[in-house]
Design a protein around this nucleic acid. Structure first.
Lengths: 144, 144
DNA sequence: CAAATATAATTGTTATATCAATAAAATGAA
DNA sequence: TTCATTTTATTGATATAACAATTATATTTG
């Protein structure tokens, strides 16, 4: 019988879930009122202020609908303001509030520490290899 | 600036999401009316018929509440029946219907093929290494 | 035994994923 | 310019994740 723990994709799923749970706990403990996903989308927006929501969705590897809803929450929580786009009325102009910049910056050392803790015992070279294999899996799945 | 694609945990997340999407599409295309998560929980139950729902939740690495709801759906879809447990009235006795056995069995070659496709270009040794590193990450996160 | 505690499962709430349907605005072609 | 098409985003429905509160039953302890 094939045990779940022996199934590679089960372990893959469990690893990212474990990390998410760990990172989310750490973030909340430091008083940041953001989910991992909100952080991810906020970062994508700050890094690419001119992109539309579809591009943000692609960048954060999220569904368009999810991005719409996550942005709503980020606006409600005071991280973003949303205004009609000056040249394309279908779009919105997303403007980060000072809080967004501050919190992302303040979160950086925590994020760094989380990653370090999660990757303890894995060398740079091993990590690079892992990264490469995972990228290969992504390609395989997206082209099939 | 740190790009999302360079963040290891982002790639980790993207890889499992890509696989899920790919595997779910393949499963639906073959006419199986199950989600990946329902499949996972059903398999855990079939492999461990005597376990209670909390043990099933642990095995499938899911929240208790999620398992309750997934089981409801599996019952509604005719994969399981649920009766009061003969010796412990807090528990339920979950009994797989013939359909469950049949579908899991019929799905096996598809699952095999999915895995093969997703892992194309990665050797057995590399996979074992990957598996080992991911297990390490899980331990690191769960003990922190 | 009775009261306190522990266990098994459900329910409620909010956030996200996925898919389908829809609305509004922009663009392109006749 | 007008009509068809495309693009951008939202909304609705169902499934799952996480966390808290609750219910029912079992077990332990005094």
């Amino acid at each position: 019988m094939e045990r779940l723990d022996d199934i590679f994709f089960y372990t893959l799923e469990k690893s990212i879930k474990s990390y998410r749970q760990f990172a989310q706990r750490a973030m909340l403990k430091q008083g940041f009122k953001l989910t991992i996903d909100q952080w991810l989308v906020l970062k994508a927006i700050m890094d690419n202020p001119d992109w539309n929501q579809q591009a943000i969705a692609d960048a954060s590897f999220k569904d368009f609908a999810s991005v719409t809803r996550i942005i709503e929450l980020l606006v409600k929580k005071g991280f973003l303001t949303r205004a009609i786009h000056p040249t394309d009325r279908r779009r919105f102009l997303l403007t980060p509030m000072p809080k967004a910049e501050q919190d992302l910056k303040a979160m950086r050392p925590i994020t760094e520490q989380n990653r370090k803790t999660a990757l303890k015992g894995i060398s740079e070279e091993q990590l690079a290899l892992l990264h490469q294999y995972l990228t290969r899996i992504i390609e395989n799945c997206q082209n099939s």
